[in-house]
Design a protein around this nucleic acid. Structure first.
Lengths: 184, 184
DNA sequence: CGGATGGTTTGATATCGATCAAGGACAGGC
DNA sequence: GCCTGTCCTTGATCGATATCAAACCATCCG
């Protein structure tokens, strides 16, 4: 109630569900990110789901806003966090609106890989996605079957491999980023 | 160079283009909104295109940031603007990832109608979209043909009508919002 | 071990929207 | 008036992805 969270450990999916059950994951949040800031009168604009065990700091929204107004550094950090989230969100729109299924999956894998490396979620190869096919599908606007087939295509092209227990090994980072249109 | 803008009059489309020419409009900005804040070292994350004649205030990014740090009110306004943009962006992801073509177009028309009313772009009916089929298509992740056919479907259902010169008349606001899944 | 369970993959078919191709409608210029 | 270009609509076909269905494969548990 009137709270928001800064993630210390773990991964959170931010999503929105339609009345008929269709769901879109609109963002993935990693350690250092905030969740639940888009709230008004106790109503949150989006839902949050923990994909792993999560450790987070809870802040009281009202007190935080008061504190921000006398702490320029904090305000700057908040602006930075929101800017970064906005940029990410715009990129997701690009992915959902313009890329085809295999491009989306390639983009997703490259994104996850970069995110986890950057935020030290797990430095280890192979990469643990922390998401089932169902979450990936809801993030990319696809079905689980199409996600599965796209992963199959990337495997057959020698770009990735999968280990038992579902982890992914990126065999060719260069070509993965090309396939996901995120080369630049 | 290091500048961003606050729109005083007119509509701006924020977009991103892939190397192969595919383009996604990631946001529409109306009077009161800012454009070009997501910039780093002179590189903008997205492109902006004026859909109408635009009147805007230009701010020097560096000076503005300095000024923000000593003006809590301004910081709060910036946070508010970014929060609102982020919420909008998440909703666009939902539209692109989950809605089918006619739902997307209905959503778009309801959104434009609400936006223009709220920002006093033009109070007049019929509604002038200020976007050609091509811009609508790039915003909704569809082709111009599909946009055209979807508008046709909404017309045949008696939800909207079009006037010569392309303006749209919303005949049944209730059903339009239902069709665009934005009833709630 | 055998059987249930949940997630993933694979296959067959259907559907929506893209693509390709014409055909209006309207404005501007000669 | 007539030509030209641009934008929008309409039609026919194709193709990517959804849907439906079944098989596969771990893991868990009796």
């Amino acid at each position: 109630m009137g709270a928001f969270f800064k993630i210390r450990k773990g991964i959170v999916a931010v999503s929105h569900t339609l009345e008929d059950g269709r769901r879109q994951i609109t963002a993935l949040r990693a350690p250092g990110d905030c969740v639940g800031y888009l709230e008004k009168d106790g109503v949150y604009a989006f839902e949050g789901e923990a994909l792993t065990d999560v450790e987070a700091c809870a802040f009281d929204r009202r007190r935080f806003d008061d504190f921000v107004s006398v702490q320029p550094d904090l305000a700057a950090a908040l602006v930075e966090a929101l800017s970064s989230a906005l940029k990410q969100s715009g990129m997701l729109s690009l992915v959902l609106g313009q890329l085809r299924s295999t491009e989306r999956v390639a983009h997703f894998l490259a994104e996850i890989s970069a995110l986890y490396a950057e935020r030290h979620v797990s430095l280890a190869r192979p990469l643990t996605l922390h998401m089932g096919r169902s979450e990936i599908a809801d993030y990319l606007g696809l079905t689980i079957e199409t996600v599965s087939r796209s992963i199959g295509k990337l495997k057959s092209r020698g770009i990735i491999a999968t280990v038992e227990s579902g982890e992914v090994v990126i065999l060719d980072d260069q070509r993965l980023r090309e396939a996901g249109k995120v080369s630049r």
